[in-house]
Design a protein around this nucleic acid. Structure first.
Lengths: 225, 225
DNA sequence: TTTGCCCTTGATGAATTTATTACTAGTTGA
DNA sequence: TCAACTAGTAATAAATTCATCAAGGGCAAA
């Protein structure tokens, strides 16, 4: 489960991130509204926690923007004690819930569970693989590098998915042929090389950080380093 | 709108009843858990507000009982400051929301609106999907592109709705066949292609911005870009 | 029953994707 | 360093996959 926390106060961030990590969530943090917007729109999150008072775009605006683009991502707003008007505005902007600071962690966690339960009932969350700034949405079958959408052909996609699912494992050409092409004999071919080449052109060409690596004599690996 | 308030503290009752009446709600009050149970189960309410500390059955128990019998009635719990454990328990018992006393009336009202909106179209308008200048009214089942009304046949509409609900997801022909045509075998057909073609003629033909895209070898997607 | 619309099927050529080949570039180890 | 091997690339031929059309069947309303 990937969560996004948009919050500038370091102690809130620290408490929430540690608490949620302990519960098995993967938490990304944006320190201001603009970063939050970029992250929320370019990456996949299962739930977003927004502070209202933020540098850059404020939480209410951000809530509206996100809900417009991604109506199926639940949002929890955080607000300072006493600013009830904000709460009302937040809920009217599409927020699903809110908490008043200071809040207890158990309370936040209970609300997160409630929202995930509610949303998952109807639409199940997308399955997503992230490797560095490469994002593969297995459910939607689309691929992004940074915020650049990448169009792949069917075979290219199958190859990428196989490499990504086996991140950091060296895969021999035979492994790849068996899993992506469904052939376990006929080794007089270099399709794999050719398709790895195609993938590199689409995925690694415009980036300094190469993700597809050659293990000479062994095969190929997909990894960050 | 009929609301039920189960609460024994007279001043809370007074504030809430007067406030909600002013907003046009019809509020019934039960002063203890047993009365609350009887009223909740025998009458129709659109929403129930439950104090946790109550004479008779306590609010948590009552919540569980009501949710078992009438899972579609939203419930807001009221709890005293500092008893976070109760909150967690309440949400796990099926409560939809909670408020910590003392609370501001505006906050209660915002949460009531949120819940009513979520549970039932009664407070909110029709459910509408907008993709670029295409507008699909799921309630009225009509479709507009720009301000041009578009007439679709039943199957065309079902297909469009499915594509739109899965905006940006690549949907395989099989996905589409299963969800729009209810068949999961018989794959020797090209109905999907033909109907996508029909839809394109009605929706994309007269617009520069195409919304239905083909992902060769994978299926079709509906998206802006 | 007939009419008219809606749905489905099959066929066609066009477009795109895939596989192969042949060649060049790069790497390894004696 | 040089051969021998391994990997990368471009061009092209083969194979899929798609868009579109036209025709026939089914069903409901007149």
């Amino acid at each position: 489960m990937n969560l996004l926390l948009v919050e500038d106060e370091p102690n809130v961030v620290s408490v929430v991130v540690r608490g949620l990590a302990a519960e098995g969530f993967n938490v990304s943090v944006a320190p201001d509204g603009n970063t939050g917007e970029k992250m929320a729109l370019t990456n996949h999150f299962d739930l977003i926690i927004l502070d209202i008072m933020l540098p850059g775009i404020n939480g209410l605006e951000l809530c509206k923007i996100i809900k417009k683009e991604k109506p199926n991502v639940p949002i929890i707003m955080l607000t300072a004690l006493g600013s009830t008007e904000n709460v009302v505005a937040g809920l009217d902007n599409g927020a699903d819930d809110y908490l008043i600071k200071p809040f207890k962690f158990a309370e936040l966690f209970a609300r997160i569970r409630m929202l995930l339960r509610r949303y998952n009932g109807s639409v199940n969350p997308d399955q997503v693989i992230n490797i560095s700034d490469l994002q593969i949405n297995l459910t939607a079958k689309n691929v992004k590098r940074g915020d650049q959408e990448i169009t792949l052909t069917a075979t290219e996609y199958r190859l990428l998915e196989f490499l990504a699912k086996n991140k950091s494992k060296i895969l021999s050409r035979i492994d790849i042929l068996e899993n992506v092409w469904d052939i376990d004999f006929n080794l007089g071919t270099n399709v794999v090389d050719v398709y790895v080449n195609y993938l590199r052109k689409k995925i690694d060409k415009n980036s300094d950080q190469k993700l597809i690596h050659t293990a000479v004599g062994l095969g190929y690996v997909m990894k960050e380093a």
